[in-house]
Simulated scan of single mutants.
Amino acid sequence: MPRFIIFVRATAVSESELKPDPELMEAMTGYNATMVEAGVLLSADGLLPSSRDSTRITFHDSVQPTVQRGPFPPSELISGFWIVKVKDLDEAVAWAVKCPFKEGGTTEVRRIAQAEDFGDAMSPELRKREEELRAQLEKTAESG
């Protein structure tokens, strides 16, 4: 089954130092629990405002990357995400629209690439190495 990431777009409020409304936190915990119980949630996290421990690195053609510290404009940012494993985009969207954002907000659903999505660019050797790395990550996650 494919994996999808549901991005939460940042807002002026999520980029502020204001603490979230306790009712929203309770609703989000319930939302996450529903996805866990359905067996679709692989990961979920919120991000701190870009004014706290945030850096943007821009790569250029054959030039040293540019490193810029936050804060950044909210319109350019993600404030959180969920990773779900579901049968298709429609199911991912069905979960995304249940998000308990009562005060407004925007999410974006994107499919996460898999080795087969890259065709011949992923040689059999690279595919094998990718599988080994994923197995190593899972082992690390289980022991951590």
Rank of each mutant, 00 (worst) to 15 (best):
H60E: 12
G30F: 06
A38Q: 12
G70E: 07
S143H: 08
F72T: 03
A92Q: 08
A12E: 15
D117G: 03
P73N: 11
Q136W: 08
D117Y: 08
E91Y: 02
E76S: 12
L133P: 00
E37K: 15
E26R: 14
K19C: 09
K139N: 10
S123N: 04
G46R: 13
F101P: 00
T107Q: 06
L48E: 11
D21T: 00
S62E: 15
F59Y: 14
E142I: 01
T55Q: 14
E91F: 02
T55E: 14
G30Q: 14
K85E: 15
P22K: 04
I112Q: 03
V109G: 11
S43M: 10
G104R: 13
A92Y: 08
E131H: 01
S123V: 02
A121L: 13
P71N: 06
Y31K: 09
L24Q: 01
M25A: 12
E15V: 02
A121I: 03
K19W: 06
I57H: 02
P20I: 07
P49T: 09
S75R: 04
A113L: 13
R127M: 05
K85D: 14
A12I: 00
V36M: 13
V36Q: 12
V40R: 05
T58D: 12
V67L: 13
L77M: 15
D117P: 05
D61S: 12
M122F: 15
S14W: 11
V109Y: 07
P74S: 10
F4D: 04
T66W: 00
C99G: 09
T55H: 13
A44S: 15
R56S: 15
L24C: 01
E103Q: 09
V109D: 06
N32M: 12
A92K: 07
A92V: 10
V40Q: 10
W82C: 09
E142S: 13
P124A: 09
R9E: 12
D53Y: 06
M122T: 05
Q136L: 09
K98F: 00
E116N: 06
Q114M: 02
Y31P: 05
V67C: 11
G39M: 10
P49H: 08
F7V: 00
L18F: 10
V86T: 08
S14P: 11
P74M: 07
R9C: 07
V63Q: 12
P49I: 06
A113F: 14
T34S: 15
E76I: 00
P74T: 08
T34A: 15
